[in-house]
Design a protein around this nucleic acid. Structure first.
Lengths: 340, 340
DNA sequence: CGGTCGCGTGTGACCGTGCACATGCCGAGA
DNA sequence: TCTCGGCATGTGCACGGTCACACGCGACCG
């Protein structure tokens, strides 16, 4: 008796609400969907009953009939890293505000099958939009193959993207970093790049090469790394056996950290003997030793704008869309003029 | 003509499959659900048609009728940090293998409303299990309030948890770290703790205090931090104005990094003047300067076991379950015997 | 030799919601 | 006064699965 006409053991449906409010189930549905043609008092009565019954719409039923899931998929590689993780968190928050849900699939960079697995996983959920943070070229081929037909946004500019792209302008960022080193007087600069199948890595490398040639500084071939501090450390040890450089531009902060470790191990001074610059500006970079000069990317903003792009006015006349967020050079203690 | 009887503009349903295979829709359903009583040749025929039609089960329809979503919710605070991010990735992978989906909700530690928002968000999806990585005491109160009735696992041991708990034994880890410092000969040890409403922070603090009193070393009150390297830095500067200690145990690696920065700024040597030990063993810790002694937690294993616990045999006779993963001391260069 | 059981399969209802269409009412314009 | 249109609301069905139940058939058993 505590609950009037409470259907036991089952969550209340719109019909339960309708019965108690003395209207048809359709009227309840209209209230839910903010239909304009409802008398205010009818609407209020329905809303009151909903509150009383603690009614919650059944997402599955709604998805079934509308064939809309209100879910955004996120395909991400290495979501344990700072950048992707920040973006995902921002996407999730932005989507929630818009009444959307987020489902993520992590893929293993080294495993081609996991890409299609992840995409299939997301497709099975009927996602309405896809954010690709896994910046590997192969992903786009797989999307095409699986004929997944949802609007998608990628967080990196491939230069040849089919979908819409929103990205920090990696090339500009890399040029910023490179120019900084050149302006300090460095002429022998190495670039420790990321894995070659990462679009970001490629873009940063391109930015580096562009700026070097624009400033007429001869370049050596970049070294391809794997983003980890460990790799930076070992690459650094390797490089220091030759020591024909005064500065290194690492493609991310972790590798820069490893590099600095190796340089210190060799008994050299940073930036006295070697200048090092990173990319990302992870929150810890300011506390590295020495504090790392790097290029800041606003990952959170990136995530928010991804969702806005995906859910916002889908202007059909502008299916191809590329927006960039400008990165920012953060000068700290790891770079300085070369010793002569 | 390219597709026989292909229903245009609509994804194939079990009835479409049934028609082409010459069976009833129920038989198709049985194939999908691995019902034992199906003749192998019938099953094969159905499977063939499914493949031909690229049939994919409609998740919403299934969820509607079974009222099971096959979705696990993850409530997480600060998912941008290494630990939570690793665990989430592991949860996602483990859930996918088990045929489950993961939906995450990020909450803002400082905002009480966001906790109930996040939980409501997850509840609306009909989650069947909940993993709480947001290790704040308030979360559990909110779960009770919202009368969310799903099994849940929390990644931290509260000592007074209502649900099942799976955690790295924070107390043991903290004791390990503390004992290490004491065994090196330190007697004046500070503890830089995490935010007090974090269960992990509290557990580590308790471990610290327990070990100190077990070894009869007098303690000073721990300092409450916020996990960030920035805080570690500023706390370090503050502490160094007094300098009545020879070692600091920081509750995570980021704060330890900030501390080391402050100590270096003061012109002191690590570990010569001050020993510093962290907690977590983030991948970068080995490349800090000096390489950080810390306590390793296996976050990925934690995530996997969470899912196993949630989806595994729900033994009703053992609703209360606490499992721990033992952490491991990793000795590197930031700790040493105190100078006298 | 009849009854029961189990296997393989089919029939129809049902889950909760939204949509297309129908309905009654009221006011405006011909 | 009649018609028409728009508002507020109701009716019935569809969405794509699963579940309960029914059914025919052969094997086994008392």
């Amino acid at each position: 008796m505590s609950e009037p006409q409470a259907p036991r053991g089952r969550a209340p449906s719109i019909r339960d609400v309708a019965r108690l409010a003395g209207v048809s189930h359709q009227t309840v549905s209209r209230v839910l969907n903010h239909h304009p043609s409802i008398r205010p008092e009818t609407k209020q009565r329905v809303l009151d009953v909903m509150a009383e019954l603690q009614y919650k719409p059944n997402r599955a039923a709604r998805a079934l009939v509308t064939s809309r899931s209100r879910t955004i998929g996120v395909l991400s590689a290495s979501s344990t890293q700072y950048g992707p993780a920040s973006s995902i968190a921002a996407i999730e928050a932005a989507a929630r505000v818009a009444g959307y849900w987020v489902s993520t699939a992590n893929i293993d960079s080294s495993d081609a099958a996991s890409i299609s697995d992840g995409l299939a996983h997301l497709a099975a959920q009927g996602i309405e939009g896809l954010v690709v943070i896994a910046p590997q070229v192969r992903v786009f081929e797989t999307i095409a193959q699986l004929s997944i037909d949802v609007p998608y946004v990628t967080m990196q500019s491939t230069g040849h993207e089919v979908g819409r792209t929103l990205s920090v302008d990696q090339i500009a960022g890399a040029r910023l970093a490179t120019r900084h080193l050149i302006e300090l007087g460095h002429r022998n600069i190495y670039h420790l790049a990321g894995p070659q199948d990462w679009i970001e890595a490629e873009a940063r490398m391109r930015g580096f090469l562009e700026e070097m040639s624009a400033q007429d500084v001869p370049t050596t071939a970049p070294i391809l790394g794997d983003w980890t501090a460990n790799f930076g450390y070992h690459a650094g040890r390797e490089l220091l056996t030759v020591r024909d450089f005064t500065a290194i531009f690492a493609s991310n902060d972790q590798m820069a950290l490893g590099l600095m470790h190796a340089v210190r191990d060799a008994g050299l001074d940073i930036p006295g003997d070697v200048s090092i610059i990173g990319f990302d500006d992870v929150p810890e970079a300011a506390h590295f030793w020495p504090p790392l000069t790097t290029v800041r990317q606003d990952f959170a903003e990136l995530g928010r704008r991804c969702v806005a792009l995906l859910l916002g006015d889908r202007d059909p006349s502008a299916p191809e869309y590329v927006a960039t967020i400008t990165p920012e050079l953060v000068i700290r203690g790891s770079t300085g003029a070369p010793a002569f």
